[in-house]
Design a binder for these strands. Sequence first.
DNA 1: AATTCGGGGTC
DNA 2: GACCCAGAATT
Length: 334
Amino acid sequence: MPHVQASDFQKILLNWAQSQGRHDLPWQIDPSPYRVLVSEIMLQQTQVATVIPYFERWMKLFPTLKDLAIASEDEVMSLWQGLGYYSRARNLQKAARYIIDDCGGDFPSELEDLEAIPGVGRYTAGAIRSFAYDHYGPIVDGNVRRLFSRVFAIEGLANQSAYQKQLWFIAEHLSPAQNCRDFAQALLDMGATLCKAKSPACERCPLQQDCLAYQQQQVALFPSPKPKKVLPLRHETYLWVEQQQQLLLVKRPSPGIWAGLWCLPQLEATTVLEPKASDLSFQHTFSHYKLKASVRHQQSIPPSELDTRWLNKDELVNVGLATPIRKLIEKHWR
DNA sequence: AATTCGGGGTC
DNA sequence: GACCCAGAATT
């Protein structure tokens, strides 16, 4: 059990957030279930400053759940281009169609029903409950994990279930039945602006006297640093096939990296080519491997099961392109 | 329980 | 470079 009374914890956070919290984020204006859903999906593993322009563009093109449901996949993916974790975009459109087709257009409001939405897990379900409905909705994300692990001196790695279980137990215990929206926002704001991963601002923290890690002068030891591993290196070969001002692109299959995005055709991994002076190349680092790629000029490609399209330069803006591929094209086309 | 999904911000 | 970010789905 936490060593701080839930009511005291709530008062401290709500009081702090009133004067020090964030109140002008785009998704805090008219926090409808749809707007909260979109923002929360975009914010998964993605920083607030990165999301803001994507969120604004998205709401302009897809103002309602229905607009999203009837959009084309290319429209959706092109708006998500550059944001990463592209299954989020495909799941978000699935979510819109699911709510319209299977929920009769009524946006779910119970935690269990929210978690049944494609792309919505335990955190996002709690966030939608809190932010859209202002109902009880515990949340544990990276901010909350850091805050709780310090205040309550909980050791563990993010991917360990026993550790997660403790964090969720505390979240459920501390989350109020009133002021749910403000409390959830306060948790995130505390984690994002005070209880930061690096150089936390303990001197300004209203929980300083209650924080076990601070009392033990071990704030820097929480949460436990995850063991670093060397990213494996992969070599891939892509093909540059150009005819009459048009470039041949293929749609990346799902599952897999860049699924749903358009990309240069990729050579089979088993095929090995001798390097040529005319080859282009690029490097790219993903979260779990490092890519060294070469790009070979060719006249044609062998038949493929994948969707293929010839695009001229003007049409490139209308589709989702893998970011390093887009950069390569912009750099080398003409 | 461990992996697979991205890409940019930041130091 | 290394680390981090309003995690979820899959294996």
